[in-house]
Design a binder for these strands. Structure first.
Length: 424
RNA sequence: GGAGAGAUGGCUGAGCGGUUGAAAGCGACGGUCUUGAAAACCGUUGAGGGCGCAAGUCCUCCGUGAGUUCGAAUCUCACUCUCUCCA
């Protein structure tokens, strides 16, 4: 959610900035509703004031034993009027809140212009795509041939976009999460955290999945009005909801490992083969709570932490600065890490690192107390995948395959795999 | 699943329907004292919002949502959560 000031005092500017990401703000409507709001709110508050004053007088008069019937009689009109105006105001505020809840974050000045993927800018890259002297296979072909990756049984058990992993591949996925958690906790100073995988609607609203993107979640039916998390960003970020964090506790850096569940609505036909786009996948997520003046430095740092995993795994990747139109709803600035996939002959997203500034914090009243001024101020929230484990598995399989369809594991994983260097 | 008890500020904990945004204590912060610290004493100390250039002023909030009333932390109803006991 944007600062109400953006809509009340800087409406035109706000609209033009939002246009950069292809969002059209209804300036005329908002101007009109805000003007009505202002008038109505003053009116309601004046009536409330009158009610409070007169009621207080009644109390005093009564304690003195004076006759109060005439005063009370005169108050009946005020009550009814207040009720009507209040209802009118509430309706208006709801309407405004709903409009504002659907407005995306303002892109930071440094964000590249553009509306589509095509306009994203490469910031840097690491490693070079390996040349194969044979035609590299895709991970699904490799996994099925190894007898360790099974989409048919997954479809039987559940449906499309699920996978069954067995043996070494199941183990590889497991140790990858441990490897990532180890790096982030031991080398990057993140605190490991375990959180619920089902969340309520308020939590989804806080991080920006609601109200606009309800169809992207798996919402469970029955007595519990919960949703499966699309990312651990949701439960972890919501730890700060309705909190006032003492300044000295910042920054707070969490790393969480959770499964993620996404409906992938509107992606029919996209990446149907293999593990690239699944309804369920594992992810190690980095989440940070920062003071506003530090958030952009923290964003660079967090991105580099995610990159570190790819570097240690010696996987070629590039860092893309997303253009305004390609960023997620809540982000002010976002880098995507894209890993090289030989079978597709291109880079594919494996991590998304975003600074949300105060956008999420305002939705959930996440604040810190400035020790100098004693005032509360909204924190900045950030997160990034560090990394998507399923896609990391895919990248390892494809980049480290040999002509026989064996997978030669990167050295950093040998110990984790109990000395095993090759999956065959 | 059934039966009870509860939910008040950073924490503990009062609060006959009427100058209660809320006693008291603790904590925190500022000050006095002290070479310094502690103790003692004095003072300050919730959040969100409207209007206004500002000084300021007003409104809302005692788990959530409705209701009764001139007036609700206090009464009524529903819900949520926590604790205890039983299955």
């Amino acid at each position: 959610m944007l600062d109400p000031k953006c809509f009340r005092q800087e409406l035109e500017v706000t609209a033009s900035i939002l246009q950069k990401r292809g969002f059209k703000l209804d300036v005329t409507l908002i101007k009109d509703l805000e003007e009505k709001r202002r008038v109505l709110q003053v009116e309601v508050q004046n009536l409330q004031n009158e009610r409070n004053q007169r009621s207080k007088e009644v109390g005093i008069a009564k304690s003195k034993g004076e006759d109060i019937s005439s005063v009370i009689a005169s108050m009946h009109g005020v009550g009814a009027k207040l009720e009507a105006k209040q209802a009118e105001l509430d309706e208006l505020l709801d309407k405004l809140h709903d409009i504002y809840s659907r407005v995306p974050n303002l892109p930071h000045d440094a964000v590249p212009k553009g509306l589509t993927e095509e306009d994203n800018l490469e910031v840097r890259h690491f490693g070079k795509p390996k040349k194969f002297d044979f035609t590299p296979k895709d991970h699904a072909t490799l996994g099925i041939a190894l007898g360790m990756m099974d989409f048919e049984n997954a479809a039987k058990i559940t449906g499309a976009r699920f996978v069954v992993l067995t043996d070494k591949l199941a183990k590889l996925q497991r140790i990858l999460t441990k490897f990532m958690l180890d790096v982030h906790t031991k080398e990057h100073g993140y605190k490991e955290i375990y959180v619920p995988h089902l969340v309520n609607a308020t939590s989804l609203f806080s991080t920006g999945q609601l109200p606009k993107f309800s169809a992207d979640q798996f919402n469970i039916e029955g007595d519990f009005n919960y949703s499966l998390i699309p990312t651990s960003e949701v439960p972890v970020t919501n730890l700060a909801r309705d909190e006032i964090i003492p300044e000295e506790k910042l920054p707070i850096k969490y790393v969480a490992y959770t499964p993620c569940y996404r409906s992938e609505a509107g992606t029919y036909g996209k990446d149907m083969q293999g593990m690239i786009r699944q309804h369920q996948f594992e992810k190690v997520e980095l989440v940070r709570f920062e003071k506003p003046e530090n958030s952009y430095q923290a964003h660079e740092e967090l991105t580099s932490h995610a990159e570190k995993i790819l570097q240690k795994l010696e996987l070629p990747y590039r860092v893309m600065a997303l253009c305004a139109g390609d960023m997620g709803f809540s982000a002010a600035k976002c880098y995507d890490l894209e890993v090289w996939l030989p079978s597709q002959d291109k880079y594919r997203e494996i991590s998304s690192c975003s600074n949300f500034e105060s956008f999420q914090a305002r939705r959930m009243q996440a604040r810190y107390r400035d020790t100098k001024t004693g005032k509360t101020e909204l924190i900045h929230t950030l997160n990034g995948s560090g990394l998507a484990v399923g896609r990391t598995l895919v990248a390892i399989m494809e980049n480290y395959q040999d002509q026989n369809g064996y997978i030669h594991l990167p050295e950093v994983l040998w110990d984790y795999m109990d000395g095993e260097k090759v999956i065959k």
